[in-house]
Amino acid sequence: MKKLIFLLLLFPFIANAQGLSVGDKAVGFNLKNVDGSMVSLSDFAKEEGVILIFSCNHCPYSVAYEDRIIEMDKTYKSQGFPVLMINPNDPTEYPVDSYDNMIVRAQEKGFTFPYLFDDGQAIYPQYGATRTPHVYLLQKEEKGFFVAYIGAIDNNYKDASAVTKKYVEIAIASLKKGEKPAVDFTKAIGCSIKDARNVN
């Protein structure tokens, strides 16, 4: 029994040292939404996938993408890929990212998707999210949700009209054709995630 407990305690650290890679099984969660309800990844089991986005209120890169994220949800919700947004930040460093302020932002912008609070900051490290915004496109397979793409939403944070590569949308198109995305990993400048436990 002692050994089992010891192993169980170690598990989160060995299993997800760097977070998830493309092809890994998605980490489940049960987090509070801005409407007060609890939302789980398993609630979406009937969908084709989920556009999971780690994002927050304060980060200018997140703000620059808000409208595009709303558009993506409107387009892909009916195609089996709804958006799910998680705020991974610790609000003591950025009060703007508090749960109450999340409610305000969701209302002001008319978010059409769940905006969840990673209370205790236990979920984002398991995914390996390092910045906001950070997308994990998940595909529903028989055994659960698996990571199909990790990275940026598109290739121009500043100017939606100047975008030439809509990474997430291209990835979804491939998945719908039964193919793996040709580009399954991209990088972007973003705000580092504020964690109360880090020296950083």
Partner: peptide, 20 residues
């Protein structure tokens, strides 16, 4: 330079793009 995916690895291939 908005094509961050292209230049981030030129600074460091392990850099995710988070600042500072």
């Amino acid at each position: 330079d908005t094509d961050a995916n292209a230049w981030i690895p030129k600074i460091d291939k392990n850099w995710s793009g988070a600042i500072p």
